[in-house]
């Protein structure tokens, strides 16, 4: 009966990799994971530089009600993640920046997050059918990624990276020294809005692997570590992508071989990566 023995890690790398790629679901997981890692590495690098990590977290959390609402009306959660995260990004960028102390602002953010999660929970209870899926939407899953999901990820990755490549140079200028950039005729405001939309796209994409609540780990940790490794933008950007890819690949491999959740591996390896870099390059 037991024709599918549970896999074991051996020291033979060739057989290990062959075992990893034996099942189509795992191949799909690696495809999706690679796309998400590249995206997170690049977009997260700008996010850490611009100190917008809390905005990134909020955009990801807002994706959760999008995903549950999509499932409720019978659409793939992929579209829900994207629609709500990008919508929230556009909404936030339209809000006037003036007025309000920092404490009032954090009360707003906390309330918005709680309401988004509560609304997602409402949709989940109305759908009622999926007891395990809520865990996947919140904490990530690599099981059952479809070809159309990978296709959507390819489109989103190309779009986001293309946009960032087009605005990368002025965006970097506007981030490092907004006043001088503005004086030189760089459209700082428009760049900020475009970047926030790219961040929304990315939060939606990364949510599908790490879940809405754990996006932070993959967006922040590789970028923050990379910016400690090098101050030269091209080199640290490359490090950020490289670290994100290795975190995802190692996590996917471990969660194939060991019966523990993907989210635990991603967050633990991300934290370890950051701490090691911090200790080595202090």
């Amino acid at each position: 009966m037991n024709s599918f023995p549970s896999p074991h890690l051996s020291w033979n790398v060739v057989t290990d990799v062959r075992a990893l790629l034996e099942y189509p679901f795992m191949v799909q997981a690696f495809r999706a994971g690679l796309l998400v890692a590249v995206l997170a590495g690049v977009v997260g690098w700008f996010m850490v530089l611009r100190r917008q990590s809390f905005a990134g977290h909020t955009l990801a959390v807002v994706g959760f009600p999008g995903a549950t609402a999509a499932v409720l009306i019978g659409v793939s959660s992929t579209y829900g993640f994207f629609a709500f995260s990008v919508g929230a990004a556009i909404f936030i960028s339209m809000l006037p920046n003036a007025g309000g102390s920092r404490s009032a602002e954090s009360a707003v953010v906390g309330t918005v997050q709680a309401f988004a999660l509560a609304f997602g929970f409402l949709c989940y209870t109305w759908y009622g059918g999926f007891a395990t899926s809520i865990g996947a939407l919140l904490f990530g899953s690599f099981l059952g990624i479809t070809t159309s999901q990978v296709g959507a990820l390819v489109v989103v990755t190309l779009l986001a990276i293309g946009l960032l490549a087009a605005i990368g140079r002025p965006l970097y200028f506007a981030t490092v020294d907004p006043d001088v950039a503005l004086a030189n005729g760089v459209p700082v405001q428009a760049l900020g809005t475009t970047y926030l939309i790219v961040l929304g796209l990315t939060a939606g994409a990364v949510s599908q692997i790490t879940g809405a609540l754990l996006v932070f780990a993959l967006l922040v940790a590789p970028a923050a570590a990379a910016q400690r490794i090098s101050v030269r933008p091209h080199i640290s950007l490359a490090w950020s992508v490289g670290l994100a890819i290795s975190i995802v690949l190692i996590s996917l491999t471990l969660s194939y071989y060991y019966p523990y959740p993907l989210g635990t591996f991603v967050t633990t390896i991300a934290l370890l990566t950051y701490l090691i870099v911090r200790v080595v390059r202090r």
């Binding site: 990590s53 904490f139 932070f216 780990a217 989210g263 991300a270």
Partner: peptide
């Protein structure tokens, strides 16, 4: 932020 995410992962 990274430590928060790790606590949730745990």
């Amino acid at each position: 932020g990274i430590a928060f995410a790790w606590v949730l992962g745990l």
